[in-house]
């Protein structure tokens, strides 16, 4: 884990389905994690941490998704950013795991224009996991005989 945070001059932030300029300097620390890097919830108990960035080197390295989920489970409320060669189809997954935004290179952004990200974002809502938490289960206490 390192505390120095470097935002690539050529990189682009994807937030709310739009290409955005980098954040203005915010108060608080920024922490960078490598994909798959171990941490404990205590590492983020410092309320001074404003941003956690998880770096991935390959789009098909899915560890960052579980890391993000674990960080959120442990109660982190700040900004969570996924940085690396993400593809637009992964954007809804990242949001659902607790990321707020993505940081992609300018070349990735050129290859995958903004509309692809805003389209992808629409697919965040209808998913089975959300539905399972909303599924009506009350009132079926009566044991059903096996089918």
């Amino acid at each position: 884990m390192s505390l120095e945070f470097t935002q690539d001059q050529n990189s682009i932030i994807v937030r709310d389905g739009k290409f955005c300029p980098p954040h203005e300097q915010k108060p608080g620390k920024t922490i960078e994690l490598k994909s798959g890097e171990n941490f404990t919830p205590a590492d983020f108990s410092d309320t001074d941490i404003a941003v956690i960035v998880i770096n991935v080197l390959a789009f098909n390295d899915g560890r960052a998704f579980s890391q993000a989920k674990k960080i959120r489970t442990s109660g982190f409320k700040g900004i969570l950013r996924l940085k690396g060669p993400v593809i637009a189809d992964q954007y809804p997954l990242a949001i659902r795991c607790g990321f707020d935004e993505l940081e992609i290179s300018a070349s990735e952004a050129k290859r995958q224009p903004q509309f692809q990200w805003s389209d992808a974002l629409k697919r965040t809502r209808d998913n089975y996991l959300t539905r399972l938490t909303e599924m009506e289960v009350n009132g079926d206490q009566s044991e059903l005989s096996p089918a």
């Binding site: 789009f59 098909n60 390295d61 899915g62 998704f65 579980s66 989920k69 992964q90 809804p92 997954l93 990242a94 659902r96 795991c97 998913n127 089975y128 996991l129 539905r131 399972l132």
Partner: peptide, 12 residues
């Protein structure tokens, strides 16, 4: 249902 499009486990 749980595994379909599970956000964490599409890139195992």
């Amino acid at each position: 249902q749980w595994s379909t499009d599970h956000p964490q486990f599409q890139y195992l």
